[in-house]
Amino acid sequence: MNTDCLTIKNQDMKNQYKALKYRSLVLLAAFFLIASVIAVIALCVGASSISVTDSILALIEDNGMARSIVWNLRLPRVIMALLIGIGLGTSGAVFQAVLRNPLASPFTLGIGSSAGFGAVIAIVFFNGLVNEYAVVIWAFIFTLLSSFLILGVSRYKGATAETMILTGIALMFLFSSLSSFLQYLGTKEEVHGIVFWFFGSLSKAGYREIVMSGIMILAPMPFVFRFAFDFNLMTAGDESAGALGVNVSGVRMLSIALASLMTSGAICFTGVIGFIGLVAPHIARMIFGSDNLFLIPASALIGGVLVLSADTLGRTVWLPHVIPIGIVTSFIGVPFFLYLLIKKTKEYW
């Protein structure tokens, strides 16, 4: 009788999980569709007077200037926006999962500030206003440096979530202060450049940047997915996860390193787009639940949708001006996030 009961319960749970899985897959497909639709819209709108038909035709045939604009300017921008959103959304989800903290994001861990400091160094000392690769390289160096510092301190003090978060917050303040100090030394032209970098921009997105950024963002993806189940176990606490065979500190350290690489791939080329890494995983959690097997791809897709929508709005809503993407992401992300937060009846975290 008891065995029968257990079997029925087990079957029920399996069915429930199957239904949940099915629901999540459908939702993921829906978000993929949304992202595709926005991508097509983004390819059809812009500052030039090319018609929507010409923009779509430009994808398949050579129709002169339209083709050049769509292939050389709009398409790289769309791909870059999606990549950045995917990178920030995924890394945010990973940080929140391994640190078991809803406030964890690439920016609360100081990675954004350190990239910013690298960019400021490049602008003030290495001609970053003209040589954009100097900015990319220095921002990348500093994101890695801050990640190594977090990992180093964690290794020394034990890789607990608290150690990592506190180290990250300390680094965030340190690098922010260092950036402010260098701004203090900068000329007015340099200070202008720094301010604009911190706003974030996709104007410089080209295929070369996409390849470099894409490698940094997409290469760690399989490893992150590989850890998704471990992340699920870690939500119950380090000890429980350890008892179930998860190498907690190892997974945590490697995940932080991978997520940092994804973050730097996202922000080194475009500047600080801070909000996505925090909010995309929360939105995903509200819609998909806490199973990291779905939460991580969902955060990636939602991040992509948010960045792409923000960039498309930012470059079209006030033509011919471009509203910096860092501002627009907050404009559209915060109300959406608050709406979901208020509408959500049960606790989601």
């Binding site: 604009i69 300017l73 206003l129 032209e189 104007s203 001006h321 471009v322």
Partner: peptide
């Protein structure tokens, strides 16, 4: 706005006859 970000697309669509760029390095 005195200093505004614009898109490459806008510049191309406007077909300027002359372009000036200023640099502040060195």
């Amino acid at each position: 706005v005195p200093y505004s970000e614009i898109t490459s697309e806008w510049v191309i669509s406007k077909q300027p006859d002359v372009i000036f760029k200023t640099i502040a390095w060195g």
